[in-house]
Simulated assay, not measured.
Amino acid sequence: MSPGIPEDVAQAIVAAGRRLDQRNWVPATAGNISIRLPEGRVAITRSGFHKGQLSADALMVVDLDGRPEQPGLRPSAETLLHCGAYRRFPEAGAVLHGHSIANTVLSRAVGDHITLARYELLKAFPGLATHEAEVVLPVFDNDQDIARLQAAVEARWDSMKEIPPGYVLRGHGIYVWGRDMDSALIRMEALEFMLECEFHERSAR
């Protein structure tokens, strides 16, 4: 484990990896998980590790520009998307990225967003007190140039009246964040439930 990662932070990331793996949202070595640390630092999963089998050795620390504290350790290329969420949302304490079947298939079949409307689980998101609401989940074309992709995400955020609870990369996966790991997991589970509902509803048409 990278020096400077508190034991409780490491345990939270390991537990989150197991929870996402149980739901088949992080197959193979897909996905990444992070927690904000003090002083502009981020604890994040290293590249190439199965998220259901994480240990403290699978974690590392980067700064908010994605630079590793230990140069010999390799972060995921998508670390910059985590850093982008932390820079944009000072209240964000954890970021999750997963690859479910529902978000992967749906994002390949839609335009630049997925609308989730009239679901009871919309009430899991702050500010939504009724199921008679909707959330517009942005969908972005996947891009191997992560800095360019993050710029596209930022531009969409700037154009929206309300920041959504997450976003999807087409054919790739979902990103969510929360004030802490529990909040991020709740947000991800709520979104994935509704995306799975959308997947089955569209498949039945």
Rank of each mutant, 00 (worst) to 15 (best):
residue 113 H to S: 14
residue 145 D to S: 03
residue 108 R to H: 03
residue 166 G to R: 04
residue 172 H to Y: 07
residue 9 V to S: 01
residue 125 F to Y: 14
residue 9 V to W: 01
residue 25 W to N: 04
residue 118 R to V: 00
residue 115 T to K: 02
residue 172 H to T: 04
residue 16 A to M: 14
residue 153 V to S: 04
residue 169 L to G: 06
residue 82 H to Y: 09
residue 97 H to Y: 06
residue 88 R to F: 02
residue 20 L to N: 04
residue 180 D to M: 14
residue 72 G to F: 00
residue 63 D to L: 14
residue 22 Q to Y: 03
residue 65 D to I: 00
residue 134 E to W: 01
residue 108 R to Q: 15
residue 17 G to D: 07
residue 187 R to V: 13
residue 60 M to V: 09
residue 145 D to N: 15
residue 200 H to V: 11
residue 169 L to M: 14
residue 144 Q to H: 14
residue 203 S to F: 02
residue 22 Q to L: 13
residue 175 Y to N: 08
residue 53 Q to K: 13
residue 27 P to H: 06
residue 37 L to G: 05
residue 190 A to L: 07
residue 33 I to S: 04
residue 73 L to P: 01
residue 189 E to Y: 02
residue 18 R to S: 10
residue 75 P to F: 05
residue 29 T to A: 10
residue 55 S to I: 02
residue 129 A to E: 14
residue 99 H to Y: 05
residue 203 S to L: 13
residue 1 M to T: 13
residue 3 P to L: 10
residue 69 E to T: 10
residue 11 Q to P: 00
residue 125 F to N: 08
residue 203 S to P: 00
residue 102 A to L: 00
residue 129 A to N: 07
residue 126 P to H: 02
residue 22 Q to N: 13
residue 159 S to W: 04
residue 125 F to A: 08
residue 2 S to T: 05
residue 156 R to N: 11
residue 58 A to T: 02
residue 93 G to R: 08
residue 200 H to M: 06
residue 166 G to N: 09
residue 33 I to R: 03
residue 103 N to V: 14
residue 164 P to N: 10
residue 181 M to A: 12
residue 111 G to K: 06
residue 160 M to L: 15
residue 112 D to Q: 09
residue 203 S to E: 11
residue 42 V to M: 13
residue 42 V to C: 03
residue 187 R to W: 06
residue 21 D to L: 00
residue 96 L to V: 01
residue 156 R to G: 04
residue 55 S to E: 10
residue 23 R to C: 12
residue 77 A to W: 00
residue 7 E to D: 11
residue 117 A to S: 14
residue 87 R to W: 03
